[in-house]
Nucleic acid binder design. Structure first.
Lengths: 200, 200
DNA sequence: CTATATAGTAGCGATACGAAACAATATTGA
DNA sequence: TCAATATTGTTTCGTATCGCTACTATATAG
């Protein structure tokens, strides 16, 4: 369409605010509707979090920060999942105040029916190149918004500025002063600090 | 990095489920934290909805479908915003049961402080080409998820299959059998049906 | 003109959330 | 060493949100 042919009723491209609304709507559709109703959205988020977080971040406090809520509320959510048999509490050897939360086998099984999987499948079906770009943009937006809200970023250890990767052998985290296993490299960490900007 | 140099601790690209989690997290950050606390997330969504919906969709029922909740809950949300002076109820001439909801000047003013604007600004700052691709992918994902959840799509009239655009003069909506003004073309409609797939 | 469908409301019960107070353990610093 | 302070986590309580059910009012179909 050229500049001359401007129809009075031509649709305009979606504005940024319309896209923002659509993102919020998308997130709501995940937990709304005919999905698995046995868990509340907060409980699903907690279960997902403890399945994804590294061993330094599997605490009620870290989850409360991730979920942008209070420690009291997070404590209740964790308690409900423990009594449902989906989470387990373990003592932290080095800190008597803290406790380490683990997902039980029943919890992992429950995650097979995660209502989020509908969105996951849709993303998986994107063309490879499209998905890579989309992933980068989402990460970029999350970083910007978290910084503005002064909320922690919660990225993967592998992308973290605290992480020293050597050419061979395990990586080392300067923040927690410990070696990182392979599985830690793709786990969420409360102390995450991006190593490099996601988008120029 | 070549295929030969596979470090045991190399970070892997984000999986689809990690991106999905990030989208949900992004949506939560919008209303969490230090944003404007005078309205609840449901109230913000309702206020935004009635500011964006076309005249056929500005009803409590249509909002309840959009918000994936019950009519009773939606009714309460609308009532609270009316008593706060942010929405107004008008009688529907052609249907005595229905009512038409309008955003008051105070409501439009409140929308200036929409906590969503942080995300909107971040999207606006994306490079032009990047934003266009991102917009298309978000719309595609919303369409897929809505179809799976059998939730209405709520797209813009201008992109709707019911819309007959002539080369000049106003467009015509075959669904509501009425002419559409320019402002309607970018408004949400409960009867939306996509004219063409968003993504091949 | 009756039967059925739809728009919207009211009341209820469950519960999720935030705030505040509290207990227990760590850490700091004189 | 020991008091002061910070941090982790829980508990309790009040508020408000949400879904459910029943209900009224209007519209539509046969």
């Amino acid at each position: 369409m050229t500049a001359e042919t401007r129809f009075t009723t031509a649709p305009e491209p979606a504005t940024a605010s319309q896209v923002a609304e659509q993102i919020v709507h998308l997130a709501r559709l995940v937990h709304g509707g005919t999905s698995d109703q046995c868990l509340t959205p907060a409980q699903w988020t907690a279960l997902r979090y403890f399945a994804r977080a590294n061993r330094f971040s599997r605490t009620p406090s870290a989850f409360s920060e991730f979920h942008a809520t209070t420690r009291g509320t997070a404590s209740q959510t964790v308690k409900s999942l423990i009594s449902a048999g989906l989470l387990e509490r373990h003592a932290n050897q080095s800190d008597g105040r803290s406790s380490l939360i683990e997902v039980t086998p029943a919890g992992h099984e429950k995650l097979q029916n995660d209502p989020l999987s509908a969105l996951t499948r849709a993303i998986d079906l994107l063309p490879e190149a499209e998905r890579a770009r989309f992933t980068a943009v989402i990460a970029h937006l999350a970083t910007r918004l978290a910084r503005e809200r002064t909320a922690p970023l919660f990225g993967n250890c592998g992308d973290c500025g605290h992480c020293d990767t050597t050419d061979s052998g395990p990586a080392y985290c300067r923040c927690t002063q410990s070696l990182l296993a392979q599985e830690d490299m793709n786990a969420l960490c409360v102390d995450f600090s991006p190593a490099a900007p996601n988008l120029r």
